[in-house]
Design a protein around this nucleic acid. Sequence first.
DNA 1: CAAGCTCTTTGCGTTTGCGCAAGCTGCGGG
DNA 2: CCCGCAGCTTGCGCAAACGCAAAGAGCTTG
Lengths: 230, 230
Amino acid sequence: MAIDISLVRNLPLFRQMDPAALSRLMTRATPRRVLSGETVFEQGAEAAAFYLLLHGRLKVSQVTPDGQQVIVRVVHPGDLFGFARALARSDYPGTARAAVESIVVSWPMADWDAVVENNPRLAINAMQTIGQRLDEAHTRLREMSTQEVERRVANAVLRLAEKAGRKEESGTRIDFPITRQDIAEMTGTTLHTVSRLLSAWEGQGLVEGGRQKLTVIDAEGLARIADPEG
Amino acid sequence: MAIDISLVRNLPLFRQMDPAALSRLMTRATPRRVLSGETVFEQGAEAAAFYLLLHGRLKVSQVTPDGQQVIVRVVHPGDLFGFARALARSDYPGTARAAVESIVVSWPMADWDAVVENNPRLAINAMQTIGQRLDEAHTRLREMSTQEVERRVANAVLRLAEKAGRKEESGTRIDFPITRQDIAEMTGTTLHTVSRLLSAWEGQGLVEGGRQKLTVIDAEGLARIADPEG
DNA sequence: CAAGCTCTTTGCGTTTGCGCAAGCTGCGGG
DNA sequence: CCCGCAGCTTGCGCAAACGCAAAGAGCTTG
């Protein structure tokens, strides 16, 4: 079953792409519904396909040999993910798990090279996507190297609010279930410390918490914690 | 002055590339010699060109708003760098500084899109390069999140030895001048801690230090520190 | 060959945030 | 409707690593 082009035509990834080529591309795609908690692929598995997230939210995590987990990134609608081939790998470096019910489409990984070669615009867009991801990774590296935990967590929360925020009466609600543990794994700290911080911030009226919920009330104030100077 | 193709033909980046296309590409390139300590480009400067390192060694660093420095990566011969355009940025995200006298070649950034569009193989290779870099960044993120300082430093030293090591009688010497400060900035710690660790390791016969020098004597032993389990 | 700068070492006090432990709470399933 | 579990909170002690400080050593330059 082919996917309606109207669903994807406006994604930045496909901008400037020839409609005919896009149409051809989509006929090769397979859609899939992923329930909350299910995985799209798992770390170490053979990379048989690459994916695009149409709807929902995924968390990509890596597990260290000794069992520690780290959240490498959050996949938002419109993001390409799982293109291990682009990294010249044959297996997936991480596990992609749905935080909420999601819709993904996939292509056989074998198509990747051909797709890239026949769609230079897409190749450039894909490269920019990876590039931005690299940029994000460097930003997080820089933060992890130089900032103490409180600032890192503030930055992470602000980013989440920006990327996945939904305006509500009281503030900006992060629009998918996220645990303290998740935030800890994104910032390289423990769930205890995150909990303490969020509690403290809640006391100052900066955020409002709850079970798997988080709403930013005073983004300005948080930003002041994230970056005391500027 | 055009650059001799024989210098670059064997680089992984240009593998599988049409010799004629490569030749055409190289006629647009400008070579430059960079003395130790000089910068190729600086953070925030307009990205006017992208580069390939032919010889030498560069350190790419970023400075945080409050003046802290972080070494984002080391550029080895054969590496492409400074392709901000691929990241969809108009300025360089970091500063590239020569650790030793180096030779770089550059192309006008304006050529980037055309180069990528006309050389799909190169595009794929470039993407893989960025992909690998992303992978490295994730590895470092994972390490910074889960490992204590000693393991991180051990990992960093092992990677340096692998990427830039030169066999010598006693062990593997890191083949460019590197300070404790550099290592600290690569691992997110302080030069003091690095100094202490290296001293301790020297006492155990794992490494041999010196001013801007570092030789790995017992890689096995270091690996055991880097990864106490398997 | 001496001066001087940069890099390195080492000691000591301090702090951050981790680890452990125990108890609480909101939500979904039976 | 109530039970049970996953997720959250909080207290306390401790260790890792930072920050500061001061002194020592290896290149380089004049």
